[in-house]
Design a protein around this nucleic acid. Structure first.
Lengths: 218, 218
DNA sequence: AACCTAAAAGTGGTCTGACCACTTTTAGGT
DNA sequence: ACCTAAAAGTGGTCAGACCACTTTTAGGTT
């Protein structure tokens, strides 16, 4: 009856209705949604159908549910869906390699963006990272790369990258080794100077080193 | 009781059980899953809980359901979930811009990969595209870009790109205009010759043209 | 024997009502 | 004004019922 062709699946229609409701009622992330029973009445559907819709959205990480408390619009970030998707998709080793390639693409693009923007090369975080690597020597690889993505300023890219990194075959959760130190120093210094080509080369060298030493770390 | 900490949510536990079942019973994409009633019995849970799990997986595009027919393991590809996610996330114009940036990153990376591989620069599809643009003059922008991604050989990247393109604010579904012809010719010729820098420059020029002429096309 | 058709069985789609576990609110007493 | 216990509200789960649709079965016709 609406502008769109009728959605056959009721639970999908409910998902749409919920979206409308959230818009209309100005429900912000963290706010409470109407209870299942109320929704069931307002939308003229059974409670079980409402639950099917809510459970789907919960799996997508769009809402959070507290027993006895209520249902809340998710405050963002945690998209746990990927955990499910990954376990279904990441069976073939081919996919694992492809995932790693996409992750690296994100990281190199971030490096390019940083190098071509004086505001970004001057960020204090590089000095801080430099210090940690040079002196403290206990930086998690993951952390360095994340700072690149964050600095590049694309929040959607950060979300995607976080998921890619979580399922990467590369041991990003390990701390950097002594051998990696010189490459990282070159990488960071090049970054600060805006030397894109050199930074990318150092990055490639770093990634190759990690790749070639994966087995030893296991 | 298991290795993992107990999952509180039954429907999440069912999702896991389904994964195990699919593995154990060697259910391939396209194959039929046990009926809801059978699953309910085998897993010792109510049918409605089974349905909550199945509906979630359906929203993720991992299974397909035919009324009266049964539930089938999805034959892959169509991840419609993004439609839901997008409608929830793509409210802020900022996100739209970020999405476009990521899409372009994919495309430029594909161009880089193609240019640095003689097998890819020699692909007949470039000649074919060239002909269509030069003579027939009715190529959809989308189509050209998709060929880039396909040629780059990363199937996961293709999946991601397809979703990004579907929600891009850039009018990629339109056919190329007369003004775009020279840029595209330079782009394709550079590609065939492996001239990465020139290809990327032509690509940038093309994208800028599209951006600056978006309003006129509306 | 092959073919067609109608009945039966199977399956997803939806709703209702019930009970439980937990949280939040309310009401009562100190 | 404060604390506490009861009540109400809410999500979690189950069982049963009925519908719409598809697949299978059984029977009869040719």
């Amino acid at each position: 009856m609406d502008t769109k062709q009728e959605n056959k699946k009721v639970f999908l229609e409910i998902v749409n209705q919920l979206k409308v409701l959230i818009d209309k009622e100005q429900i912000r992330p963290g706010d409470k949604l109407p209870s299942e029973r109320v929704l069931s009445e307002r939308l003229n559907v059974g409670r079980s159908s409402v639950r099917e819709a809510l459970r789907s959205l919960e799996l997508l990480g769009l809402i959070e549910t507290r027993q006895g408390g209520g249902t809340f619009l998710s405050s963002g970030q945690n998209i746990q869906l990927v955990e499910i998707l990954a376990s279904f998709i990441l069976r073939e080793s081919r996919t694992v390699k492809e995932l790693d390639a996409i992750r690296k693409m994100h990281e190199k693009e971030a490096i390019r963006i940083i190098c071509s923007d004086k505001d970004l090369t001057a960020l204090p975080v590089w000095e801080s990272l430099f210090y940690k690597i040079e002196i403290e020597n206990d930086v998690v690889r993951d952390h360095i790369l994340r700072e690149f993505i964050i600095a590049s300023g694309n929040r959607l890219a950060l979300k995607i990258w976080l998921q890619l990194a979580a399922y990467s075959a590369t041991p990003l959760k390990k701390t950097t080794t002594k051998q990696e130190k010189p490459m990282l120093i070159v990488l960071l210094k090049s970054l600060q100077l805006g030397f894109q080509k050199e930074a990318l080369a150092a990055y490639d060298e770093w990634m190759n080193y990690i790749k070639n030493n994966m087995d030893n770390e296991k």
